[in-house]
Amino acid sequence: MPTSIITTDDLREFKVELLEDMRKLLAQHKGSGLKRYLKSNEVMEFLKISPGTLQNLRINGTLPYSKVGGVIFYDAEDIQRVMEENRIYNRY
């Protein structure tokens, strides 16, 4: 089996190619950003809200949800829509 020597230039070139491949993969998944369905704890962490606030958003109908086997799920697109609909613009 022939021996090949790897130089620092080879390693640099490999690093650049690897980073470019990773950027392409991230760009493909960037549009999705989130999983399609999130559990309550994921929503609270994402929005930086308490369990009580999340419950209020459910009760008053602000945030739609689905309940499957006792687990509450939220559609990530619904969360984005609610955030956009409630955006406040400063006039300054």
Rank of each mutant, 00 (worst) to 15 (best):
T3P: 01
H29V: 04
I79D: 11
I49F: 02
S50V: 02
V68T: 11
V16M: 13
L54E: 07
Y37T: 05
I79R: 06
E20V: 00
N56R: 12
G69Y: 06
Y74G: 00
T53Y: 11
F46I: 04
P2Y: 01
R81P: 05
M44N: 08
F73N: 08
E17F: 03
Y92G: 10
L19F: 07
Y37Q: 04
R91T: 07
T8S: 11
P64G: 05
D10F: 05
Y74R: 06
G61P: 10
S66G: 07
L47C: 12
A27Q: 10
E42Q: 15
I5K: 09
S4F: 15
R36N: 09
D9W: 11
N56C: 03
N90Q: 09
G61R: 11
D75P: 00
Y89P: 00
G69K: 04
G69D: 01
F73G: 00
Y92K: 09
S66I: 12
R12Y: 12
L54R: 01
K48T: 08
K24Y: 06
V82E: 04
R23K: 15
L34G: 01
L26Y: 14
V43M: 07
M44Y: 02
E85C: 06
L34R: 10
N86A: 08
I6T: 10
E84A: 10
R58I: 05
Q55A: 08
D78H: 08
E85D: 13
P2I: 02
R23D: 14
Y65P: 02
L54G: 05
D75C: 06
I79C: 10
V16S: 13
R23N: 12
S4E: 06
L63Q: 05
A27V: 01
K35Y: 03
G69L: 07
M44I: 10
Y74I: 00
G33V: 06
P51K: 11
Y65C: 09
V16Y: 07
F14P: 00
I72H: 04
D9H: 13
I72G: 00
L19Q: 05
T53K: 13
G33H: 03
R36Q: 11
N41K: 08
L11H: 07
G61L: 03
L19A: 09
F73E: 00
Y37S: 04
A76D: 01
D10V: 07
L18W: 12
E85T: 08
P64T: 05
R81V: 05
P64Y: 05
F46M: 14
